[in-house]
């Protein structure tokens, strides 16, 4: 057992301040444990979100010593306990109370993205065939736990408040997972360029740095999507070839 101080943001709807909570800590503790200890011993009404305590649900996102992280996966032994540890809510979203923010915008954004649209089943029993190597990339994107830490750190949202015209890295990953899904037939190129605002991303890679799932958001999702958009809208020859390919593919599907 040793002592540490946690400097936690308290207050409602943006009207808040830091408060210091000294408490004891023991081997193996994570930041969420400290928050729970403080909640049960000193501040019963301290608001925070959590569910799995194992980095699987993406509920406990916060800014710890200024860095967007999961509270349940941040070990105290990685932090300098000689100084107070600051814990703040994610700053890119409207504040609700203490460590809780209003992330409902993210759920509305997803609803607007064209859903998965499969091709006809390929096997007689009504199922599909996919090779593991063809789904590895999509599986990487589908590891996303919707913690929204990447949204929190992206300057387009955080500093420029482009929530109305940019879906943010999380949903570019989502679109990439759909676009690269071997069975999907929908075309999201126009929506990527317009509604999703992919052009706002200037590849700073901040999102990739904070992703707790280690998804290569920029390199594997955003850049390939940008290339597709460029191909489609700015390279007429490639666009034509693609159009013809698509038509022959559709014909094949109809006849199969």
């Amino acid at each position: 057992m040793s002592a540490a101080t946690f400097r936690i943001w308290r207050g409602e709807r943006g009207d808040g301040r830091f408060e210091d909570y000294p408490t004891t800590v023991s081997e193996g503790m994570v930041v969420l444990d400290a928050v729970h200890r403080i909640q049960s011993e000193q501040a019963n009404d301290l608001a925070c979100r959590w569910n799995c305590k194992a980095g699987k649900c993406g509920s406990c996102s916060a800014e710890i010593n200024g860095k967007p992280r999961l509270m349940c996966m941040t070990r105290l032994n990685e932090l300098d306990l000689a100084k107070p540890v600051t814990i703040e809510p994610m700053r890119a979203f409207p504040h609700v109370r203490d460590l809780v923010t209003d992330v409902s915008w993210n759920f509305r954004v997803k609803q607007k993205i064209q859903p998965f649209t499969p091709c006809a089943p390929q096997a007689a029993d009504g199922t599909w065939r996919m090779q593991q190597r063809d789904v590895d990339r999509v599986q990487e994107f589908r590891k996303c736990i919707e913690c929204f830490l990447c949204q929190d750190v992206c300057h387009v949202l955080r500093d420029h408040n482009r929530h109305d015209s940019f879906v943010g890295p999380r949903f570019l990953v989502h679109v990439a997972a759909l676009e690269m899904h071997p069975l999907d037939t929908a075309d999201r190129m126009a929506e990527l360029r317009e509604a999703d605002g992919i052009g706002y991303c200037n590849i700073t890679k901040c999102c990739t740095t904070v992703c707790p799932e280690g998804i290569a958001i920029t390199d594997n999702a955003i850049i390939p999507l940008k290339e597709r958009v460029v191909d489609r809208f700015y390279d007429p020859l490639k666009a034509l070839v693609r159009l013809m390919r698509r038509e022959t593919r559709d014909e094949r599907r109809e006849t199969s």
């Binding site: 569910n51 194992a54 699987k56 649900c57 509920s59 919707e146």
Partner: peptide, 10 residues
């Protein structure tokens, strides 16, 4: 909880 955070996710 929020959508997608239920136990099933674990």
């Amino acid at each position: 909880s929020l959508l997608g955070k239920a136990h099933t996710v674990m």
